[in-house]
Design a protein around this nucleic acid. Sequence first.
DNA 1: TAGATTGTTAATCGATTAACAATC
DNA 2: TAGATTGTTAATCGATTAACAATC
Lengths: 215, 215
Amino acid sequence: MQDLTRPILDRLPRYYHYVQDRLERHGQSTLSSSGLATMLGVDDTLVRRDLAAIGVKGQPKIGYHGEDVLARIRAVLGFEVENHAIIVGAGRLGQAIAAYPGFQSYGLRIVGAYDIAPDRIGLQVGEVVVESVDALEAGLATQHVEIAILTVPAHVVDALAHRLVDAGVPAFWNFAPAHLDLPPHVTVRNELLSVGLAEISYRLRRGNTPPQPHE
Amino acid sequence: MQDLTRPILDRLPRYYHYVQDRLERHGQSTLSSSGLATMLGVDDTLVRRDLAAIGVKGQPKIGYHGEDVLARIRAVLGFEVENHAIIVGAGRLGQAIAAYPGFQSYGLRIVGAYDIAPDRIGLQVGEVVVESVDALEAGLATQHVEIAILTVPAHVVDALAHRLVDAGVPAFWNFAPAHLDLPPHVTVRNELLSVGLAEISYRLRRGNTPPQPHE
DNA sequence: TAGATTGTTAATCGATTAACAATC
DNA sequence: TAGATTGTTAATCGATTAACAATC
C-alpha cells in the first residue's frame, strides 16, 4: 500500500468513530459512501477513494460492510499493535489523556508517569504510579517505551524532549504550547490546542465561514 | 483582508508561540522568515506569504519585528475580544482545558461549568463552580455564552449539542470521540484527539516518513 | 556597491471533485 | 431491465514552492 498522506490520516479516525457508532448504537451493518460523506461534511467520492486506498472493498448497490471498514482502519493505523507510552507531566491534562475513552483499544498502553512536583509523586494515574523525573532514564532502561506523551509547561518541553531522544524514545506526542522540533529520525506530533481556539475565535468574529470543502 | 483558509489558521498559532518564545526567553526582537521556517519545518516563502496575508510588514535586511507579528496574529484571530465559554463535562479533560496555559490571554473566559454527576456538582473549577446540566438553559438565559466546550462521553454529545444550539450557543469545541454535525449557522470544531494517536501509531510502524512538505 | 532579506508573480504539485464506467 | 451504488480516470482547484524583483 502507498504511504498515506496527512489529510487521509486525519479522516480515518473520523470514519472509524462514525462507523463504530452506526454499528453499535444503530445496528447498521452496511454503510454507503454518501452517508458517511454527508455526515462528515466531505465529498462522497473522497470517501470511496479513501476506503479504496486502505483496501476496503464495497459492494455496488449495497455499500461497505462496517466491520470491514473498522478492521482495515485498525490494521492500517496500527491499532492492533500495542504501543507503550509514558506520560511526562502528570497534571490534569496528562491524566485526562491517559484515561481518554478508546485509547486503550487503539493500542495505547500507559506504562509510566513522571512529574517533577513532589506532591504528585506516588499518585496513582490509571494503572501506574507517578515517579520523579529523576528516575526517567532508569525507568526507560528497564522498559520499552515507544511514545512519550508530553504534558509539561512550554518552557521545559524542549530540554526534556532532547533528554528523552537521548534515552531512545522514538515518538513524541507534545501537548505543551510550544512547537517541538526534533531530529528527523524521531516522530513528533505537536498537538497545540490553541489552534482549535484560534479557529473558533476567528470564525466567531467573521460570521462563521465554515471550511466546507470547495464551495 | 481575505478570508483565511484552514492551513494558515493552523500555522498562525504556531508562529505565535514561537515568536513569543524568542521574544521572552531569548530577547530576540526581530526574526527572519527563514528562521521561523526552519524551526517549524515549512518553507520560508510560505512564512512570508502568511505574514503578508495578515498584514505584517517586514524590513529587507532586518526581518520582522516580533511585536508586530504577535500583535497582528492576536488581532486577526480575535484574541483581543473576550469570548465567554462554558465547560460541559467537568472531568479531568474539561478542567485541564479550562486551565490550559495561555487560553486566558487568548480571550477565552470560562463563565460556567456543568456536569451530570452529583459528586461533581459544587466543585470549584478555575473561577467557576460546577452546576447540574439541568440548570443549563437557565444559566444560558442569564449569561452570554459564545463557546461551549464539550468534554462529555461520546454517546451523549449529539443530543447535548442540539440542546445547546436551541439555547442559542453559536460555537462548539468538541473533545468527545465522536464527530459532531450541527446546522451550518453554528461553528463547530471537532478536536478528536485520536487523530494524533493514529498518526503517531501509523508512523511508528512505517519507520517515520514525516510529513516534510513536498520532499 | 554588495549582500541580505522581504515581497510577489509564475510554475508546480498534490488533493479534491466531476464525469462516467463497472457492477450487482 | 432499471436503478443504485462502487470504482476509476480525467479535470479542476487550491496550496505550496521556485524564481526573481524590490528594498534597505
